[in-house]
Structures are given as C-alpha cells and as structure tokens.
C-alpha cells in the first residue's frame, strides 16, 4: 500500500518535525495515490506487457495462421464479438445469458467459499491449538486431501439432488482442505515467545486462543484463503463442465460442443477477470484485518 508512504517519512524524521504537510483525505488522497502511481513506470510497463501479448496472439492466430493456432479465434474476432450488440456467435456484454452465467458461477463461489471458510478456519485453529484434536483429525484430513476433486464428482452426484448442490459441494470441499491446512500451519508457525509472553502476563488458555492464536495465524489464514479461492474456481469450473445448466464452466464446454469457439474464449477470459477480482477482494480484506502487517510492509516500501 503505497498510501502509507507519509507515515514512514514521519518515523524516519522522528516525531515533531514542524513543517510536515497534512495527510490528504478523501478524493485528494485518491488523487495523490493515482498521481504517484502514474509517475512510477509500473502502469506503463503493464500496458506494454498486455499490448505485447495481444500483438503476439493476433499475429499467431489471425495474421500468420500458425499451425495449432488456426482454429483458435483471434483477438479481433473475440473482442469484436465480445463488445458487439449483435454477436455472431451469441455471447457478448449485451446478451443477458452472459451475465446469467457469470452470476451463477459467482453465486456458487460465494456460497462455497463462505461455507469452507466458516468451517475450515475454526477447524484449523483448533487443530493447531490442541494437540489431542489434531491427533484425532489429522490422519483423516491427510487421506481425503490428496483425492483429486474430480474423483469426487460421481459421489457428489449420488449424494446430492439436483444440479446446484453437487457443484457447490465440490467447490466447498476443495476450498475447505486448503483453508484447514493453512490455518493449522498458521497456528503452528506462531513464535513460542508470544505464548510465553502471554503466559507471563497472566492470560488464561481461552485468552491465549483469542489474543495470540487467532491474530498470530491471520497471515497464514489469508494466504490460505487466497489459494482456497483459486482452488474453489478450479473445481467449480470442472464441476460445471460435468454437471451443470449455467455457469462459466458450462458456457465454455457447451460452446465447444456447439463448435462456437469465440464464446469459449470469452468464457475463459471472463473467468480470468472474475477470479482476479475475487482474490483481490480476499487480499484487501486481509490487509484491512492485518494493519500491523500492512503498515510494516509499507515501511519497507512494499
């Protein structure tokens, strides 16, 4: 967070320097951050990088028609259909079904991620905190965890009625394992010194849990949640391809089956953007909850 640059200056100079400018707030702060970003090379390099990739993609698929690329819809075909009021292949930002697909997938992800987090974080915390509970639970977790999520598909269809619940179940399951494991490792990563300090200061076990175990494992928990979000998307799309009626995974596979390749690519790119946004949201929530870490990283200029 480059916005904390002002506070780092204050520390280096020591408190009470007289001519320190007031920190901007609201829109002024947003403008300050934007200006600062525009003065750095980052946005220009990013634009150049994206432009370069699109150029190569265009040359390979639409200009030179290289082998293996001749069936791939090129950037011009994709973009002109994507933003067209009357798309040739039926899917664009002006067709209603496009948003239905996005919404259905996003809704499933939200449900799956919420369930996985609500179960996984407490479970991981207890497993990391209580040796005895870990002894009970860890062998089962470690046996179930390596089973690829696609291997669960038939069982999920047998267990749950309808089209919606098996898909959500599969995404939840994949996400759950990641969250539990990372949370548990998070608790185990907490330096013994904090437990000793807390004991020395007279905290009871329950207080240690609230005041040391939970905040101490947050960095690992949020790393885990970001991975779990990615894994949830991965298994959701796989599940939607196997059993589904709507959703971006279904859009991609049904376009392929119907030999319309442009919506296929539109579905893929949409997945990329939506996935990016969801993991950015998780990251932002993490930064918000771990100000102590965010500010220290800002001090180091990261």
């Amino acid at each position: 967070m480059s916005g904390d640059g002002t506070s780092s200056v204050a520390i280096q100079r020591g408190g009470g320097a007289p001519a320190r400018p007031r920190a901007p707030t609201g829109i002024a702060y947003f403008q300050y951050v934007l200006n600062k970003k525009l003065r750095s090379p980052t946005p220009y390099l990013m634009a150049l990088g994206i432009g370069g990739w699109i150029l190569i993609y265009w040359l390979f698929s639409e200009v030179w028609n290289l082998p293996r690329f001749e069936k791939m819809p090129g950037p011009v075909a994709v973009i002109s259909d994507w933003f067209s009021r009357k798309p040739f292949q039926g899917t664009s930002i002006f067709t209603e079904t496009y948003y239905v697909h996005i919404w259905v997938s996003v809704r499933r992800i939200m449900i799956a991620f919420a369930i996985a987090t609500a179960i996984g974080v407490p479970l991981g915390l207890i497993m990391g905190w209580s040796r005895r509970f870990k002894d009970y639970a860890f062998p089962i977790l470690e046996t179930l965890r390596p089973i690829p999520i696609l291997a669960w598909v038939p069982l999920a269809i047998l267990m749950f009625k309808g089209l919606e619940t098996p898909v959500i179940f599969l995404a939840t399951l994949a996400s759950l394992f990641v969250t539990v494991l990372n949370t548990m490792l998070g608790v185990e990563s907490i330096d013994e010194a904090y437990f000793r300090a807390a004991g020395c200061l007279g905290s009871k076990p329950r207080q240690v849990f609230w005041h040391v175990v939970i905040p101490g494992s947050l960095p690992f928990i949020f790393t885990g949640l970001q991975i779990s979000m990615g894994v949830a998307w991965f298994s959701l799309v796989a599940a939607e391809m196997v059993s589904g009626d709507y959703g971006l995974g279904y859009l991609i596979l049904s376009s392929y089956v119907n030999s319309v390749t442009v919506p296929m690519v539109i579905g893929m790119l949409t997945l990329g953007f939506v996935g990016w946004i969801t993991s950015a949201l998780v990251r932002m929530a993490g930064n918000q909850m771990m100000q102590w870490r965010t500010r220290a990283l800002a001090l180091e200029g990261r």
Partner: peptide, 26 residues
C-alpha cells in the same frame, strides 16, 4: 516478568495495547 532476547511484543497490537495487555486480561 521476563523481557526476552528477541522482542516478544505482540506484533498485532499497538504499543499502547501491548503495554495494557497484562492488566487488561487479568
């Protein structure tokens, strides 16, 4: 009270919260 070799201040608490930690919990 032990003051440890490496700092054992809780990194997720501010200086004031750290200083108040013991009496507050008790």
């Amino acid at each position: 009270m032990v003051v440890f070799q490496e700092t054992a201040l809780m990194p997720w608490l501010t200086v004031r919260q750290n200083v108040s930690f013991g009496p507050q919990l008790r």
